[in-house]
Structure formats: structure tokens, C-alpha cells
Design a binder for these strands. Structure first.
Lengths: 370, 370
DNA sequence: CCCGCATCTGACAACGTTGTCCAGGCTCTA
DNA sequence: TAGAGCCTGGACAACGTTGTCAGATGCGGG
């Protein structure tokens, strides 16, 4: 985390205190207060300028009925002249709804989450809500910190891609009316809506695809099994192998290795040795990219199927066969579910699983080479 | 835009009115009011339960000094028991700062903006602020709508990737103290901080690179010239050609074509005909991807340099030579600049230009083939 | 000419928090 | 033991908006 050495720290919990006397530095506080919003005009100012009452300004601003055209014009002019803009912060306090929803995901820079986030945003926009998002960096503590910060802001709803596996901390929030939908991975120890891709089925089909093309020694490189999707994909791999009656050897599997250097090492190990694998199933987009590199360097053809689509996969030689999940559909589905909750349709929590799609491009159809 | 048929519409400007009588539906309103935050406990409730004053609770919640350990314990217990969480909405209203900044970009799903957004988020986080972001979809009206909505929320600052070319509408906001930094493209008709990549220099160098490898008939495919970066890259192209004393033919240039189908057509046109180009400079990542496809299909080697790096560019055959800009650095620089403004360092608006980097991978070093 | 009604307007409280300020109780010293 | 000074706690106003409700205004009809 970056270090903030600046004086801007609005959520700072301390109040200014003089080191020697322990007295609150009143002058300092006053100066800050004075600058609040740089002295933005309020409805009161507009009312004074237009020579009308406060509530009349409110009426005009909100296009409520019951204002004569003439009064309205005067108010509009005052608004223009002063550059007034309604303070939604205050509005929110009064009305109870913030018209904003929170999205907590793993890393916005990951190409998988960009479209997902965008899809959530579009749905939110259609409902007149803004989107606040934060990245958990796959850290459960940071996830919780973010989620609770969003709850303190009184977001109307939350879309969470869980990093942790215990979300009981959300119970009081959900009880208090914060609509919540989990995406991509299920919630831990709490009953809530979940929207998932069919990781198990996708992986099983992908591995079965390799088996159908004659492979028996198939490697699996996946993320930490504590991540639900990773565990499911591993389960899918095992299921496909078992269905085909192929006993899996430990040397064929790499679990929980994420950093590219070590994924590379794991892939190299599988491809060398006395009985190397002839095909690899890559558990996510980052792994796939690394494995593509390793295979390109290793000289002989190795079949590959990856989970998650990657850009330009079709332009590589051979094209990369993938089990694609629809990130945008995940986001859209989750957000729609969220707003259905907010509409007050009291619905029992549900688990929605979206299908994956096998896209054959060449790499998954290579025959075993040794 | 999606259609919102639901009843959740918190920013709806109307108040509930009975169709026949024209009377406000008071009961309905009351019911909603009652449910405000699902009846969340407030400090008052905590105070009552702990048997202390309101301000004492505030002190505990904010870790302010002046509370005896015993009192503090009682308050903490009450907080636990009630599941109290401070309402930052109200806090914000009182304190004047919202500890949130807005980011308006073109499309979060674009792989270029993911890392940029993430970088802004990290800086914001280091300063204790949350990030609200929105996509303008390259529509100036939507940009303005978003920006003003964010201002109404009283975000402390704004990072804007402009879609429009007139930002005078931001003048009152900036005057009122909303820190503002433009990124990727300069602001229109307003004096403000801008953080840019050196599009002109990058394009010029990229094209000069092609010229240095013997090309003279070099195509340019770029975005609409009303987009500043597109215009600058075009200018860079022209400058490089002029420096080399090569007169540019109109048939070599495609401007303002963005949708993949038509980019494809433009590329195909350049590569056929009586005197086809031997090299192409692609004005952005989306164009580059399409051009790579066209070149792959066309059968003969065509040199290519693209603006913006793309994932897997090194794995293609040949690797794609690009002029890379550092999206994360853009975001980080802009956000840091923003918080410097918020620190109250009154600094004159500045234009910061970050260098680009030419990454040679093969496609830009191909000799002319005809 | 005045009353009743409809329409328009504004005073006021409330939302949940924090800053200010004062009261009361305690300790310490003369 | 009284007075000064410190520490803790609480009453109250304010932030900017919206909901409520009552008052003002105007108009038409009796």
C-alpha cells in the first residue's frame, strides 16, 4: 500500500490536538470548517436571492408540482447565477437511500473483471445508481474493510467477489437491508444470493475434450484450492479423468501456485521428466498465458485448454482452445438480482450458475505427441 | 441503455401521487420512511442502551480522548449488541469532505483503462478515499451527466478522461473546490491539470522506426481526429513522414473509423490496390488487434507498429512491435496530482506528459516486401 | 361583498452525525 | 478545607436537504 504523507485524510479519526497542551486546536478546525465545500451556495442562498422560501427552491430543483412559472423562472435564474448544485449528501441523509451500490472485486486491472464491472455499472445506471468499486487484492481483511466502508456509506446494495471464506460479518448489514449478491465465488458461512460460472462442468468438459483427442497424461495447473472456483475446476478435472478411467498422478498437478515465475516452473516440470504430460489444462487466464509461453518454448506440440477466454487467443499458432465464461453476463445477472432485491421482492437466496462455452481453436485438438 | 422497469429508483424526482385525487400518498411514503435503512441503530440508540450521552458515543466511535475505560467498555458493548455502524452519509454532511473521488473514463471494459483505474484506486486508498467510477462510453453528454452527478455527491475530486471537448461546465465546480485532473486527453476550453502520454512523440518515433527499416509507403489507421490523442498520433505520423521527405498519400490514411468491420475494410484497402502500403501504423490497441488479423490473412509480410501495448503481443508470429504507454503511471500520476490539490497546495494547472516506449518484437522490423 | 375552495408558498422539524461549550466531580495544593 | 484546575460527560446547534402542515393568495359564485 502506498504511503499517504499528505494532510488530506478525510476519514482520519483523530481531531487536531496541540502536542503540548492537549487542547483541541480550535482555530485550525474552524479554518477547515470554513472551507467546507469551498462555500458552495445552498438552497437557502438560492431562496434568499430569488426572494422565495427554502421549500420552493426544493420544489423547483426536484420538479415537484405546485410552483407558478414565474416563481420557477426566478428560482432558476438564481440557481444559474449562483452556480448552485444540490448536495446529494444531504439529500441522501434525508431520504435514506444513497442511489449507489458497491462492487468489491479482486483486481480491476485483471481483464476478466473489467467487463464484469462495466456490466454491473450499466445495470446500476439503468436504475439511476452510481457504482463505487474497490479491489480486495485477494486479501480477506481488505475485502472486509472495503465492504464495511461501503456499508458505512450506506450503499443500497453490494456486489461482492469474495476473497475470504467467511462472510458472517455481513449478517447485520444484510439484516439492516443492504442488498447483497456474491459473484464468481460463493459466500462463506452465510445464506445469500450467488451468481457463478459452472467451473466444475466447464473444467470437466475441457478435460474431456482433451481426452477425446487421445490424451491420457493431462496436466492441471490451478490456483489455490481455497478459492472456490479453483477447487471446482480441480474437481472437474478429476471427474473427467475418473470418467475416462485414468488414474491421476500427483506430478501432473500444480495447485496454489500463482506467480508467473513459479507457474512457469510448474509447467516446465510437467513437460519434462520421464513421462511428461501431452496436454495441459490451465485453470485460469493468467496461467493460460504463461503456459502458452512455456509450450511455445518447449519445441514440441503440447495440447492446451485454458479456463477463461483471452484476447488474441485465435491469432496464436495454434489458436488457444478455451473454456470461456461470460464475465459481462455474470455482472449483469448479479446486478439485476441485486436490484430485484432492492425492489422489495423478498426472495429466497438463490444460487445461479451460468454455463461455460468451449471454444475450439486448435490447441485443444492437437493429438498426443509422444 | 438498459431499461429500468423496477420500482427502485432512488434518484427519481417525483413524489408519490395518487392518480385520481392528486394527493400525496402519505401512507406509502411513511412505510418507506419507516424502512429507511431497515431501522438501523443510531448513535442515539447506542447512547440510550449504554446509558451515556450522544456525544460520548461519538467520542468512542471516533477514538477521541476523554472517555474513561469503563464508559468506553459499556459503549462498545452497546455497539456490538445493536450492530451499530456509523452512518458516513451524515458524517460527511457534517464534516464537508466525502473521502471519495470520482473517475470518469471511457469504458472500464477496455483493457487500457483497467490498470489506470486500479492505479487511481490505490492512490485513493492510500489517502483513505473511496473511488466512484463511471463510463462515459465516449459520449460527451453522458460524460457531463456523470461528472455532475459526482459533483452533486460532493466527491472531493475528479479524475476525468474526457469524451467531450468543452469542459466549461466544470468551471463552477472547480471554483467551488472540486479538485480536478484530466487524463489521457486534455480538457477543452478550461484551465486544468492534465496528464498525458506523449502521443505525438510516440507515434513519430514508431513511424520513424518503420522508415528506418526501409519503408516508405506506410499506412495510418486511427480514431476520430476530434479525439485529441488520435489527432496527436496522426500529427506524429505526418511529422515522421515529413522528416523523411516522404509525401503522404490520402489512400494511406484511415481516420475516424472505429468499428472493427470497417477498420478491417480500411486495412484491406491499404494492402491491396496498385501500390499497397508495406507497413501500417495502428493508432490504438483495438485497431492493432484488427490489423494483426488482416495481415495474418493477407499472406505476405506487412510491417506493423501499434500504439498501446496488447497482451500476448510477444507470442504472435511475428511479435507485435508497439509504442507502449503506461496506463498505470497515467492513473497514478493523475491521482497524486489530485491529492496534492486537495492538500491545499494551490498550484498552477500543469500539463504533464509521460514518455512512451517503443517495444520491438519483430513486426516493426520486417523489411518492405514489395 | 364575502365566503369557500383551490392553488401556491414558506416555516419548521427531522435525518444522524460532529463541534462547541458548559456543568459537575475529582484531585491537588495552600 | 476551600479554591484552582483538570477531566469526563452531556446538552445543543449545525450541516443541507425533504416531508408536513398550515397560512396566504386569488378566483369564482352566491
Amino acid at each position: 500500500m502506498l504511503d499517504a504523507t499528505s494532510s488530506y485524510n478525510p476519514m482520519d479519526l483523530r481531531i487536531p490536538v496541540d502536542d503540548r497542551t492537549g487542547q483541541h486546536i480550535v482555530a485550525e478546525t474552524a479554518r477547515r470548517s470554513e472551507n467546507r465545500y469551498g462555500n458552495r451556495p445552498t438552497m437557502k442562498d438560492v431562496a434568499a436571492r430569488a426572494g422565495v422560501g427554502l421549500k420552493t427552491v426544493s420544489r423547483v430543483v426536484n420538479s415537484e408540482p405546485g410552483v407558478t412559472p414565474d416563481t420557477e423562472r426566478r428560482v432558476q435564474e438564481a440557481i444559474e447565477a449562483l452556480g448552485f448544485r444540490r448536495n446529494d449528501s444531504a439529500r441522501v441523509l434525508r431520504k435514506g437511500r444513497t442511489a449507489s451500490i458497491g462492487l468489491v472485486l479482486e483486481d480491476l486491472a485483471d481483464p476478466f473483471y473489467g467487463p464484469l464491472s462495466r456490466a454491473v455499472e450499466e445495470v446500476a445506471r439503468a436504475h439511476g445508481a452510481l457504482l463505487i468499486n474497490g479491489s480486495s487484492a485477494e486479501d480477506p481483511d481488505r475485502e472486509q474493510e472495503l465492504v464495511l466502508a461501503l456499508c458505512a456509506r450506506r450503499v443500497d446494495g453490494l456486489v461482492v467477489i469474495p476473497a475470504g471464506d467467511d462472510h458472517r460479518y455481513l449478517e447485520p448489514e444484510m439484516k439492516a437491508g443492504v442488498a447483497t449478491v456474491f459473484v464468481d465465488r460463493p459466500a462463506g458461512r452465510i445464506d445469500a444470493d450467488v451468481v457463478l460460472s459452472d467451473s466444475f462442468g466447464g473444467a470437466r468438459d475441457g478435460v474431456a475434450h482433451l481426452i477425446a483427442h487421445g490424451h491420457r497424461r493431462i496436466g492441471f495447473i490451478g490456483d489455490m484450492p481455497r478459492i472456490h472456483t479453483a477447487a471446482e475446476r480441480l474437481r472437474g478435472y478429476r471427474a473427467a479423468m475418473e470418467d475416462a478411467g485414468i488414474p491421476v498422478e500427483d506430478a501432473w498437478m500444480s495447485l496454489g501456485v500463482t506467480d508467473p515465475q513459479r507457474v512457469r516452473k510448474a509447467a516446465e516440470d510437467m513437460l519434462s521428466g520421464p513421462s511428461p504430460v501431452t496436454a495441459v489444462f490451465a485453470g485460469n487466464n493468467r496461467v493460460t498465458v504463461t503456459v502458452v509461453r512455456v509450450i511455445a518454448e518447449c519445441g514440441r506440440p503440447v495440447a492446451l485448454v485454458g479456463f477463461d477466454d483471452i484476447e488474441l487467443a485465435d491469432l496464436l499458432e495454434p489458436g488457444v482452445t478455451v473454456v470461456a465464461q461470460d464475465a459481462a453476463a455474470l455482472g449483469r445477472t448479479a446486478a439485476e438480482r441485486l436490484f430485484r432485491q432492492l425492489d422489495g421482492n423478498l426472495i429466497a437466496p438463490e444460487r445461479i450458475e451460468l454455463p461455460t462455452r468451449l471454444i475450439t481453436r486448435g490447441s485443444g485438438e492437437l493429438p498426443p505427441s509422444s
